[in-house]
Design a protein around this nucleic acid. Structure first.
Lengths: 368, 368
DNA sequence: TTTAGCACTCTCGCATCGAGAGTGCCAACG
DNA sequence: CGTTGGCACTCTCGATGCGAGAGTGCTAAA
């Protein structure tokens, strides 16, 4: 049950199947992870016994720690420091040791209420999602708009503005709206100056709406030849708009809570948070995530070096897709130090993704 | 000529009118500022003479430095360190000592070319502006979309989508497009289920376009009573859309180059860049800037403690408005340490703001 | 199998110290 | 009289050394 909602991004660091721990080892590992996540200080045997009422002596804990270290689940910063979980240790913790801290009902209600206050189609919606994620997990959060993997024609409106410009407003089948201005000179060259008043535009829009519904860029292109001049000209523009929409996988990134990360002691040195800022500003990285998340839904956790990106050795991601299945896909998640409060982050990301799925499908109705 | 394009945000730290420097003092101050901006190391008399061929002995420079310090233009981190410009020193440098480093023609052409590649109405345009600013000045950059201070009705289209939803696509008179979904239940309650097909919507849109052109939210509201049911219902929604547009001063912030700031030695300690991140994420601060920039166009430079915000003692801003005069107003600029390459930043911000003005007015034509 | 004891190791904080950079002042010079 | 060289003085910075403290690993006993 844990494995279906969590997936590793690379097999390299997955847990060896033979890795079975004794009860004591499991208890100690759990305590070490939770203490270290809380305090950011390498944890020693003495303190652990004190704080977690383990009912055994420090010496016993020490030997358990040594075993866990031999298994690669804990590390030693140096001879005489406490233990710190390794990436593999976190992985094991996340997959089978952790007790998830679900959001309580009051939180859920409040979040739901906030979402009901803003328009689904506005960017405010995504900003809100980012703010909720960041606030609830005290990490940096990322949300990208939900987009169809292949843009399809939904509905077009052609608008003649009083200043003479002609506007194409295209509603994609995933509900997104894109617009583009028609070039005056090009327009006049193809159809002559006379035939582009609002009436003529309405006719053309009618033709396009009747013939292009649900078509992707290449299919629209194939129809162009059979259309009357004005409609054909607009259809060419529409092809461009669809192609542009296809070419962008992650068009915009909404982010919040960078300051949360800044406050973590591991990022006190400014240069350490460079990789995080880069992720948040460049969408390349998130784009790599899209296919992974699209394939299997649910929450994905990527811990430290499990990440292919070298710069992100000390960063963990907790991400989930959202959107309408087979229709539109967006990403949301949090990122912070590997020392992340997973028991909080995972349920929060999961809740938000299901909530947004739900809101989308109830608003859009049973959009074919 | 310098004073009309640069304005101080607060009079408190303005240069005393009686402050007249000898030629030597001016040369030394300029050299100190430029050396410190370059190296981030407090500059001593010896090195200054070596690097800037001042033609006098270190002792002479020392006495000039002492005079400048007495005038409040330089400071001493401690007894035995070199001199560092004070905020006032930077101010004087910016206003009368600096030789601006204009962008060369190749740069201008390249920038212009990049802008010609993207749609004016898309966010890509703003992202590009932010990227250019950040790249050219090696600071963090900020760009906000150009918005009318009061939203006015431009043109409306009502769209019946195949899935049954009804969409309001409103083009504001500043060229921005906003959209909202009509609530099905509310809609049926006011006009009955039958009268909302595309034909009926077209009629209503025609009525609205004929009566509401150029109207602001309160004026639209006054007309509602005289409209037929469907048009009246949509008009109410439009009032909401206009009011929402009015209520947001800075709706979105496009930013780039945070990593540039991160690389500056004064921000090596992570916590130092907190104020900068806050500006970039919260729009409150930028909103305060809007009225200042709107009143007098041109490039504004705010240096360190000239800024009312306490957290920004070590940060300088170089900002300019852009947009169509009396129509739409946006902000763009860079921010970095007070030790900023002003001779580069100021011309870049100025060029970009005039370029964007130009592009906007040529695209939008003579939009009354 | 668990526990207590103990020697050992390594970090961290603190104090010390000398080198180096830079200043301010003064007397001499053109 | 402005400029310059000389010189004593101050302060930071990095290296060094040292002791306290925390934590481990091992071993022998319960």
């Amino acid at each position: 049950m844990a494995s279906d909602r969590l997936a590793r991004s690379r097999g390299a660091t997955s847990i060896p199947p033979a890795l079975e721990l004794t009860d004591r080892q499991r208890t100690v590992l759990r305590a070490v992870v939770e203490d270290y996540v809380l305090t950011a200080v390498p944890v020693g045997s003495k303190g652990l016994v004190d704080r977690y009422r383990l009912g055994v002596s420090p010496a016993t804990v020490r030997s358990a720690m040594a075993e866990l270290e031999a298994l690669g689940l804990l590390t030693h910063p140096h001879t005489s420091a406490g233990r710190v979980p390794s990436d593999l240790g976190y992985r094991l913790y996340v997959e089978s040791l952790m007790r998830e801290a679900e959001l309580d009902t009051a939180d859920r209600l409040m979040i739901r209420h906030q979402f009901s206050q803003v328009q689904l189609t506005s960017n405010e919606w995504l900003r809100l999602a980012a703010a909720v994620l960041a606030g609830s997990t005290r990490s940096a959060s990322v949300v990208t708009p939900a987009r169809a993997r292949q843009a399809r024609f939904g509905h077009v409106q052609l608008v003649a503005l009083p200043d003479g410009t002609r506007l194409v407003v295209l509603v994609l089948s995933d509900g997104n709206v894109v617009q583009r201005r028609l070039d005056r000179i090009l327009l006049e060259r193809t159809v002559g100056a006379e035939g582009t008043d609002q009436a003529a535009l309405d006719v053309a829009a009618g033709v396009l709406n009747a013939t292009l519904a649900g078509q992707s860029a290449p299919l629209v292109r194939r129809r162009i030849a059979k259309l009357p001049p004005l409609a054909a000209h607009v259809a060419e523009v529409i092809v461009g708009m669809l192609e542009e929409a296809d070419s962008v996988v992650v068009e915009e990134v909404f982010t919040d809570g960078i300051v949360n990360v800044l406050e973590q002691p591991e990022f006190a040195e400014g240069s350490k948070l460079r990789p995080i800022l880069e992720i948040l500003q460049r969408s390349d990285f998130l784009e790599q995530l899209v296919p992974v998340l699209a394939r299997s839904g649910g929450v994905h956790v990527i811990i430290g070096r499990e990440n292919a990106n070298d710069a992100m050795h000390e960063v963990s991601l907790v991400f989930a897709p959202y959107g309408a299945p087979h229709q539109a896909l967006g990403l949301l998640g949090v990122l912070g130090p590997t020392r992340m409060p997973y028991p909080r982050a995972i349920p929060t990301v999961r809740y938000l993704s299901t909530l947004m799925n739900e809101l989308i499908s109830s608003h859009y109705g049973e959009l074919q």
